[in-house]
């Protein structure tokens, strides 16, 4: 069988297909449908210092080939994640990556410090791109100086490999990517959801209580592929590509654009088995092309 090992700087994955944060909870629910050990890794739900209640419903609306969500980082807080959720993931064979968020720079640093050295945690993904919270989140991710400050603060609080998850809601993604890498991020995740909105013509009001939401699903894939391409071309940094991936072919687009691994998000809602299908399709592609592994494909679409 084809060797799908993916190496992203300090992080080695058994295969390049991760599940994206916020779409997979802490894995437990999907464990009924698939063998979680076969995933390339699990990026668990965005975790903050204190519990967050989340936004008032409705929190979702379907859009063409996608959806808008405004969950608002609902989570039980880092202490409960450490005591309740991470122990359940201890025996898992694939790496567990914790997505961290905060409303202040110091909060990011404190969450990172509490997770530092945790034996179940393979890496941290810094979420500077959540569009659904009023403070922090995307407000950090759209300003290169703030991204630098957050990543530096987290870097000073942990020795874990650091991934920075970037927002697409910026003019120049390369500028933000550069800031994150200079501040100590070893890997970049891109993209988070695209800021969007829907209006209910029946009630003549915004459909989501939070007014704006994050757009995900196949609808955003071309935007994501373009941004992976741009960042890879400029920085040659390890990238986890994400945004509307629903098939092996989709995953290959990201890999060819420069992603060393990919994450699958919303497609899990539609097909809980989609990640295993994508892994199989990547294996088939590599075998059919007579390749040794993935590495020769990463960024191969660049001239």
């Amino acid at each position: 069988m084809a060797d799908l090992t993916a190496v992203l700087g300090p992080l080695q994955l058994p295969n390049p297909v991760l599940v994206a944060s916020g779409t997979f909870g802490y894995g437990e629910e999907y464990g009924t449908y698939i063998d979680l050990n076969r995933l390339g890794g699990i990026m668990v739900k965005g975790t903050t210092l204190h519990p967050r209640r989340g936004n008032r419903p409705p929190r979702i609306v379907e859009t063409p080939a996608g959806l808008l969500n405004s969950v608002g980082l609902q989570n039980p807080g880092v202490d409960a994640v450490i005591s309740e959720e991470l122990p359940k993931l201890k025996e898992l064979k694939c790496p567990v990556i914790v997505n961290i968020a905060g409303s202040t720079v110091d909060e990011y640093a404190q969450v990172a410090a509490r997770l530092d050295g945790h034996p179940t945690v393979a890496a941290l993904e810094i979420n500077v791109s959540c569009p659904n919270v009023n403070e922090g989140g995307m407000a950090f991710g759209t300003d290169p100086a703030m991204v630098r400050e957050v990543v530096q603060a987290v870097r000073g609080s942990t020795d874990l490999p650091l991934i920075c998850k970037l927002s697409p809601n910026v003019g120049d993604i390369v500028q933000v990517a550069e800031a994150a890498v200079e501040a100590g991020a070893q890997i970049l995740s891109l993209i988070n959801t695209v800021l969007g909105m829907s209006i209910d013509v029946g009630t003549r009001r915004p459909t989501l209580t939070n007014v704006f939401g994050g757009l995900s699903g196949p609808a955003i894939r071309p935007i994501a592929v373009r941004m992976v391409w741009e960042v890879y071309q400029a920085l040659r940094v390890p990238i986890i590509g994400m945004g509307g991936i629903a098939s092996g072919r989709d995953a290959l687009e990201f890999i060819l654009a420069g992603a060393g691994a990919v994450a699958v998000g919303s497609a899990n809602f539609t097909d809980p088995g989609v990640c295993l299908k994508i892994i199989r399709e990547l294996e088939e592609y590599i075998e059919a092309q007579g390749l040794d592994g993935l590495s020769s494909l990463v960024g191969a679409a660049h001239p």
């Binding site: 916020g22 779409t23 997979f24 909870g25 629910e29 999907y30 009924t32 449908y33 739900k45 989340g54 008032r56 419903p57 929190r59 979702i60 959806l67 969500n69 969950v71 609902q74 919303s266 899990n268 809602f269 809980p272």
Partner: peptide, 12 residues
């Protein structure tokens, strides 16, 4: 609903 199985937290 999104996932329908308890993971995505949209049907609050």
């Amino acid at each position: 609903m999104g996932c329908g199985i308890g993971a995505c937290l949209v049907c609050a």
